[in-house]
Design a protein around this nucleic acid. Structure first.
Lengths: 122, 122
DNA sequence: CTAATATCAGGTGTACTGAAATGC
DNA sequence: CGCATTTCAGTAGACCTGATATTA
């Protein structure tokens, strides 16, 4: 987090750029679903990415409601830079754990996250 | 988090009440250090606790800079209620893990947290 | 004078809600 | 018509940065 702000980026930027370069161009609603970022926040973040030249916004010809968001070459370079930073931070954070311990940790956390949400409140 | 808001409490309330009932009365600066909550936010949260009758604020006679914060009987009852809620939520969250798995998880996370912070930035 | 304390005013990133306009 | 998409305006809690006044 602090590392991202040092290069003037936020979590939303990184997550959107990651979705764009890993999964390809998509409409904003699709990006929202892929990243878990709220639609409203996708709008603001894409505004920012476009403004910095990291992405392009074009109307989808086959469905003119949609804005197709495409990553630019600059955006891809930006993502590579951010991703390297994030990986480096993760490595530092997990340096107290061995490789097999990290696997155990990920497995346990995944089990928690993949738990069906509780529906007791009704 | 959502559970706390259902009873009109926030994380800061819970953490301060916990520190007060577990460690006893203290000055606001001490509470800040014990809970990791910023001094500014301690002020606002104590305001709220006092307003609801969960805590008392009195000037420390031996050092008049200090405000001694004391938990009231109401505050202790409040904490018991919140603590029960939190424990229940934790249990739900971790229900996918066995008791020994939970121990492993806690051990791994503790190792990460007890890591000396990185001082690469100079 | 230096240091600690309490307080206030404000800013930021994350997350969400509600409503409007447009197009399928 | 219902439905999806985009956009804007606003709210909320967590977290943090100063600056100020008081007292040790």
């Amino acid at each position: 987090v602090a590392t991202l702000s040092a290069v003037d980026a936020r979590g939303y930027d990184y997550r959107l750029l990651a979705a764009l370069t890993e999964y390809g161009a998509a409409s904003q609603a699709t990006l929202s679903r892929r990243t878990g970022i709220d639609r409203s926040d996708v709008v603001a973040t894409v505004n920012d990415l476009v403004h910095h030249g990291y992405a392009k916004r074009t109307v989808d010809a086959s469905d003119r409601r949609r804005n197709l968001v495409t990553v630019t070459a600059r955006g891809r370079a930006r993502y590579k830079r951010l991703d390297a930073l994030v990986l480096h931070v993760q490595d530092q954070l997990l340096e107290a754990l061995s490789a097999s311990e990290r696997e155990v940790l990920v497995t346990l956390l995944r089990r928690i996250l993949e738990q069906p949400p509780d529906e007791t409140d009704q």
